[in-house]
């Protein structure tokens, strides 16, 4: 045994070989799919997020398709990242006094904390579920009313809850999945 010990110590390639075997085993097992992989094939496969996931904001509408926001600026007051910019104005609708002429969120500054959603007294802003947003220029990350209220990803499903109860989208995500994944 002494001889073997000295050999292994002297011939380091034995250990190197052991390491290569380990790497190779993982490579082959992953390739064949014997071990559970932690990564996913992203654009084709998507992870399921919790219903409470906070993605890009949604500005809700009234049933007559007007913006629900009254431009009270409580979201901008509460925002820790100071990423909300509102310019209030007299609404063209005579029954409504105040509305936001400009409502901009700088998505690069936003920390997606959801404080704006909590501050809103009229449920005009909610945290949406979409998180994919890529642009070539930073200035394009400042999104306005048009995008926040009726972007294609919302698929027209955007009315405030005080007019119509939202369908609860049940996710098949479970806590155990999360544990396994991490």
């Amino acid at each position: 045994m002494k001889l073997l010990d000295s050999l292994t110590r002297r011939f380091y390639f034995v250990t190197a070989l052991k390491g290569l075997v380990m790497t190779g085993r993982h490579f082959i097992f992953n390739l064949v799919g014997i071990t559970k992989r932690h990564t996913i094939q992203y654009p084709e496969q998507r992870r399921k997020y919790s219903n409470r996931f906070m993605g890009i904001h949604v500005l809700t509408k009234k049933p007559n398709n007007e913006i629900a926001c009254t431009a009270c600026m409580l979201c901008a007051t509460n925002c820790p990242a100071e990423c909300i910019h509102i310019v209030a104005a007299e609404s063209p609708n005579p029954k409504v006094e105040k509305y936001p002429a400009v409502y901009e969120i700088d998505l690069m500054r936003c920390v997606f904390c959801g404080f704006c959603e909590e501050a809103c007294p009229v449920d005009a802003i909610r945290m949406g579920r979409d998180y994919e947003y890529a642009e070539l220029s930073e200035r394009n990350f400042v999104v306005g009313i048009e995008y926040l209220m009726s972007r294609p990803a919302l698929k027209g499903r955007n009315v405030s809850i005080y007019h119509e109860t939202d369908k609860v989208v049940k996710s098949d995500f479970q806590v155990s999945d999360f544990k396994k994944a991490s």
């Binding site: 009254t70 431009a71 009270c72 409580l74 006094e97 105040k98 007294p121 009229v122």
Partner: peptide
């Protein structure tokens, strides 16, 4: 109580 749209708020 329309504080959100009231300038005095």
């Amino acid at each position: 109580i329309d504080c959100p749209i009231c300038d005095q708020a």
